[in-house]
Write a protein that binds this DNA or RNA. Structure first.
Length: 591
RNA sequence: AGCCCCGUAGUUCAACGGAUAGAAUAAGAGUUUCCUAAACUUUAGAUCAAGGUUCGAUUCCUUGCGGGGCUACCA
């Protein structure tokens, strides 16, 4: 039983014996730094049950606890807050039990429980990944890790949007203007090459519209009648009818993109357990829609299109099948969800998709529920804010995007520059150095994005580079490296458990932080928020740096103190490494 | 028009309904005979507005203002 439970029971007993009252629960919080104490009980909450002056009640409870709970050495009451001071021994034994578990805070997945699936990334295969995708990937990957650490089996997945008119646009532009260019003969990354033709298509399309308008057509018609667009639509028809040449081109160009994505994913450090392809799943939902139509979940309009009426739920009518019988986005998402629950023994499925699709997912979940799938209640949308530039939204077609590969490269370059100025790595080989620059650069990028509450939109100004000082990834990596340096230099056995020692306030603060780690993992898993892990790690590191600065570790005169402080350092290092691994960030031994 | 998210120091981010709203950065002042100064210490600086609920509101409710998004037979 942990201390908090012990105290809670004692508080209940206290109320029984002093006021003859039953308390259901006790509200705890960490004592604020400005007050003396380690754990605080909020007395206000009891006023509903026991009338009286909160200070008086707090004092009485405090006296009772001091008397009856050995771990409590003192208390004080401020307003309605009862601050309890815990015995050093309590902290020391708590610390000692933490150190016996190298993965303290991380739970192993329970094999007999159902798994959780997390979808993220889900790119279109007609253009390269950009900063928006980076946020998506980092969030999805990190959330997968966090859920896993909270004790669940996790499958990472994506749906690849590999078909549709947008794909045909880049295919057509390549056919018309590509002159046989390939990633091999140009040295361009495949996704970049294909993306260029997507942009090219748009330029040509716009040119044609202007020409048509000049020749007297109104703009609305021109947008529909532009020859290059008609040609692309024709290509889509051919694709759907299985035209060999079109399919061949489609396969070739998609493969270029996949090869390009693989490199980006690898650099970013994310991966997937299973890919779903829209080209395989886009027809799946249609059967379900037909079935739902029979059961009157859906209704058919005169023109043959199929809809669902969600006006009773405060939403609108939503189309689920086109008049010509082809699938829409929603149709395919219905099918894919069902497929996933067939493929795996899932308890829950989370979609990592930007908040512009909040409405779509609300509707999707509602439809699945109306179709009678019990698991529909276990679907969630990890909705995150867009990454915007100072001039507004990123638009691939207009070339106003921050490219994922370029950004990662820039971050690495900045890390290299800073590191070379500091010049601490003489003994490293060029390879080791480059690996480290990448680790630091990506650490800065990932932390910068993940520390922000997913719901909030990020405004990214390319002019102002991402920081490497202050509340940043490198700051935390640096602390880790310093700790490793201490451990390398600790040429004595520091494995013995220290029991009898009086704690420095900074040591106590660190142990308190460390104790919190398992709880933080649970809370961030529940809230699907890596930001909580990031902020926790930052707090821990702040406390450690303060400790490092104000007390000697290896230089301690007292042998027990030296051992204990080294152990604390090691544990903090382990925790940094674990929590950063949940963010997908690596930590260096030196920097 | 309706619906959804967001409004906190100059800027970027924190704060289960709890105490004197924390950090970082930029600005000012310090700390290297000592374990990595990408660090530490320190000074100044903020809850969009008005009501309401509460012992207590940045947090919940209402209204207004400001920013973004969605309301496509695009995905």
């Amino acid at each position: 039983m942990n201390i908090q439970n012990t105290i809670e029971n004692s508080v209940k007993n206290a109320f029984k014996s002093i006021y003859n009252a039953n308390i259901e629960s006790v509200e705890f919080q960490a004592t604020r730094k400005d007050f003396e104490g380690d754990i605080t009980i909020v007395v206000f909450a009891f006023l509903r049950i026991v009338k009286g002056n909160p200070v008086e009640i707090g004092t009485k409870i405090g006296e009772y606890l001091k008397e009856n709970v050995v771990e409590i050495s003192d208390f004080n009451v401020v307003k309605g807050f009862l601050n309890l001071v815990l015995d050093d021994k309590t902290f020391i034994s708590s610390f000692n039990s933490m150190t016996t578990d190298a993965n303290f805070g991380i739970l192993d997945p329970k094999p007999n429980e159902k798994a959780v699936m997390v979808e993220y990334s889900s790119p279109n295969t007609n253009k390269p990944l950009h900063l928006g995708h980076i946020r998506n990937n980092l969030l999805g990957f990190s959330v997968s890790k966090i859920i896993e650490a909270s004790g669940k089996k996790v499958y990472k997945t994506q749906i690849i949007n590999d078909r549709g008119i947008h794909i045909c646009k880049s295919m057509l532009a390549w056919k018309k203007f590509g002159h046989g260019k390939t990633p091999e003969n140009t040295g361009l990354k495949g996704d970049k090459l294909v993306g260029n033709y997507y942009v090219k298509f748009d330029q040509e399309y716009k040119k044609e519209i202007i020409e048509l308008v000049a020749s007297g057509m109104n703009e609305k018609d021109a947008k529909k009648e532009a020859p290059i667009l008609l040609e692309a639509q024709n290509m889509l028809l051919k694709w759907e009818s299985g035209d060999e040449k079109v399919i061949e081109l489609w396969k070739m160009m998609n493969q270029w993109v996949y090869d390009g994505f693989d490199i980006t994913y690898q650099n970013l450090g994310v991966d997937f357990d299973k890919n779903y392809y829209e080209s395989n799943t886009y027809l799946l939902g249609k059967d379900v829609v037909a079935d739902g139509l029979n059961r009157n979940v859906f209704f058919k309009k005169k023109d043959g299109s199929v809809w669902i009426d969600l006006t009773n739920e405060g939403l609108d009518e939503k189309i689920v099948l086109r008049a010509d019988g082809t699938a829409v986005y929603m149709t395919q998402d219905i099918g894919t969800a069902i497929e996933r629950f067939k493929d795996y023994d899932l308890d829950a499925l989370t979609y990592t998709v930007g908040n512009e699709q909040d409405y779509h997912f609300k509707v999707l979940f509602l439809i699945l529920k109306k179709l009678g799938f019990e698991w529909a209640d276990h679907l969630s949308h990890l909705s995150y804010g867009m990454v915007d530039l100072p001039q507004g939204k990123m638009k691939s077609r207009e070339g106003t995007v921050v490219d994922a590969d370029d950004l990662m490269q820039e971050m690495t370059n900045t890390a290299r520059t800073i590191s070379q100025e500091l010049g601490k790595l003489e003994s490293y080989s060029t390879d080791e150095k480059e690996k480290l620059y990448k680790m630091i650069g990506l650490g800065a990028l990932k932390y910068y994005i993940l520390k922000v509450d997913p719901k909030k939109r990020i405004l990214f100004n390319p002019e102002e580079s991402i920081d490497f000082n202050g509340n940043t990834g490198p700051f935390i990596q640096y602390t880790y490296a310093r700790i490793q340096s201490i451990i390398r230099k600790a040429n004595f056995n520091f494995n013995d458990k220290i029991i009898d020692i009086s704690l420095h306030p900074k040591e106590k603060a660190l142990i308190k932080q460390l104790q919190n780690f398992p709880n933080i993992i649970n809370v961030s898993a529940e809230n699907l928020s890596p930001a909580l892990i990031a902020n926790y790690t930052y707090e821990l590191v702040k406390d450690y740096n303060s400790f490092y600065q104000s007390v000697p570790i290896l230089g301690s005169v007292n042998e027990n103190e030296k051992i204990f402080r080294t152990q604390i350092s090691q544990k903090v290092g382990d925790t940094i490494k674990l929590s950063f691994s949940l963010l997908g960030i690596e930590v260096p031994d030196r920097m």
